[in-house]
Design a protein around this nucleic acid. Structure first.
Lengths: 345, 345
DNA sequence: CTGAAAGCGCTTACAG
DNA sequence: CTGAAAGCGCTTACAG
């Protein structure tokens, strides 16, 4: 059924019906109500292509995923939050995939030129990220999940990775740890740099220096967590504490610790960045795991709100937030073992 | 830039340009090439709303997610496969979320009536599933990931859950196990029933009977895996083998087994349904974990192909596949412990 | 092989 | 508060 037929059934002109449905003010309340009721009763919904053509609005937000970037468990949660934040907004998420940065840029160009989306969301930004000037030049609204180190004249939502890791590191230093390892994401992404700088800053504030040979970078997999933990613990001067960048890396780290017959929380400490997966709960492990916690689902929900505001004309610079990260101390982290205690330098 | 302007720049009529771009045969090859080259050079892409309005095709496939159904880690992989299978097809995935079955049906109605998608994908079907007659009656093409127990006059891709679990159970029975526990998904979904029937069938083929008090049903979380495994092992006559429905449940099961001081693969066997997550590899655990393996990413890719065929006019009944599941035996499963051996009945 | 023009189903400035 | 009609940017039957 199209508008013409629906309007005939309701006994009004297409104009009035369209206005009633779109919430325009100049329709008599009782007329609006009648139109709404009839639309529900008859199952009428405006053809989205026609609406899109007439208004220039696609009613969708684009998310481009890079295959091969093992983003996986985070992606579900993020999309869940995003889509949840858009529920009942008549705005959907459009997902496409690409295999290279070049393809990613080409996809933004296509999505924008064909008016398929009203805005896009950028993930995993680098300190200097080509996608941002590219989108700005095209005039495509976008929101960055994370941020760059360039001037921030764009909308973004990030968490305070620097502060979170600095606080966790400071806590470990206070407990006497001096050999602290990091298992983080791939080099080149802003959040990875922020986290590593957080470690360095905590050390240098105390006149100490972090050992960069204890920094591992790879995708967040159980396998990488295991591999790096083994490697670091085979070191002549092994770490007494590990910071793991995700629950998946942490699973591997814990496995390595067990394999070496060490007791987590006593022989070695572990603090994990927790994106909050409903199926894998740090509070539930044995021992319970200390975390830097920040719900990626909430971030998705917030970015959905940002997107709606952006489409309502908000200036990108007014849509910028950096969320604090909670440090939740549990059994996996504790004082440095007696045997490994050193005189503070 | 719109078609009118682009056609002017190329020096041809809108008709010819449109036909060249859409791959119609009646365009001179050199004309087509010139149009294509210019489209790339000038970044022209047809307005998707206009194309949609003119053709009646949305160029998108809908996926509706139910929030609260803890589908999470599987979802990323599935969408990854789906989107990958649609790459370069000018077809995107449209994701919406709903919180109830009623909302889900209403969303299909809206997506179909507004011509926002050309087809939808149904997840987690029940033996009798209301969504199927609903979509059939609306005439909306759809593909079921899984299947019902009703007549299958629709397109679907499922895996042989019955056969997989039956084989795994038979293997355990052959090794002398008689107390076999199951930690599966929520009751009421076809795949859960198929898996449980697989266990029962393996038992009854040997004149034995499975103990339904060893069947646990819940979302696939580490927590549920732990809780059920503890509960079953506290039993007066505890299981000697556990079948876990996902890697997440298996993590909890392994944790419970460790907590009780038991050795996996010796004191108790474990076989896990593995959807193949790139970040969590059964081959990499200690001990390595026996699995029933089927890549959910591949399933997503295959369903993308089905969707394309459906949109090209293929009859739904011709798009039906049930994939076999590999049984990969590793260290986590072995003979029943001496102490628990019984005379075969 | 190419083109002029109708039509897809909306929205919205304009008129009343 | 309501309506007639132009226009959004494509595709495609029809004509040549």
């Amino acid at each position: 059924m199209n508008l013409k037929e629906f309007a005939r059934l309701v006994g009004l002109s297409q104009t009035t019906v369209s206005r009633a449905l779109s919430g325009y003010p100049e329709v008599k309340p009782e007329t609006r109500k009648r139109v709404h009721d009839e639309a529900v009763r008859l199952g009428y919904h405006p053809n989205r292509s026609a609406t899109g053509l007439a208004t220039g609005r696609a009613g969708a937000i684009g998310v481009v995923v890079r295959t091969g970037i093992a983003f996986e468990p985070i992606f579900s949660e993020f999309i869940g939050g995003l889509v949840g934040g858009l529920e009942r907004q008549q705005i959907e998420i459009l997902v496409s995939s690409v295999s290279s940065l070049e393809d990613e840029l080409a996809t933004y160009q296509r999505l924008a030129a064909s008016r398929r989306v009203d805005a896009v969301i950028i993930h995993a930004p680098r300190p200097v990220d080509d996608r941002i000037p590219f989108l700005q030049q095209m005039g495509t609204p976008f929101i960055v999940h994370g941020r760059t180190e360039t001037p921030k004249d764009y909308a973004f939502l990030d968490i305070d990775n620097f502060g979170a890791v600095k606080r966790a590191t400071s806590h470990l230093l206070d407990l006497g740890h001096r050999r602290i390892a990091s298992i983080s994401g791939p080099k080149g992404q802003t959040y990875v740099e922020h986290r590593e700088r957080g470690i360095e800053s905590a050390f240098s504030e105390r006149g100490l220096q972090a050992d960069p040979s204890l920094f591992g970078n790879d995708h967040f997999t159980d396998e990488a967590g295991y591999r790096y933990t083994r490697k670091f613990l085979d070191n002549a001067d092994p770490p007494t504490a590990v910071l793991a960048g995700s629950m998946m890396s942490a699973l591997g780290a814990m496995r390595a610790i067990r394999a070496l017959g060490m007791t987590l929380g006593r022989d070695i400490s572990l603090i994990v960045h927790d994106d909050v997966f409903p199926y894998l709960n740090a509070d539930n492990m044995a021992p319970t795991v200390s975390t830097m916690r920040s719900s990626i689902r909430s971030a998705g929900g917030r970015i959905a709100k940002f997107a709606l505001q952006l489409l309502s004309g908000a200036a990108p610079e007014t849509l910028q937030e950096v969320w604090p990260v909670e440090l939740v101390l549990r059994e996996s982290s504790g004082p440095v073992p007696q045997s490994r205690k050193r005189r503070a330098l």
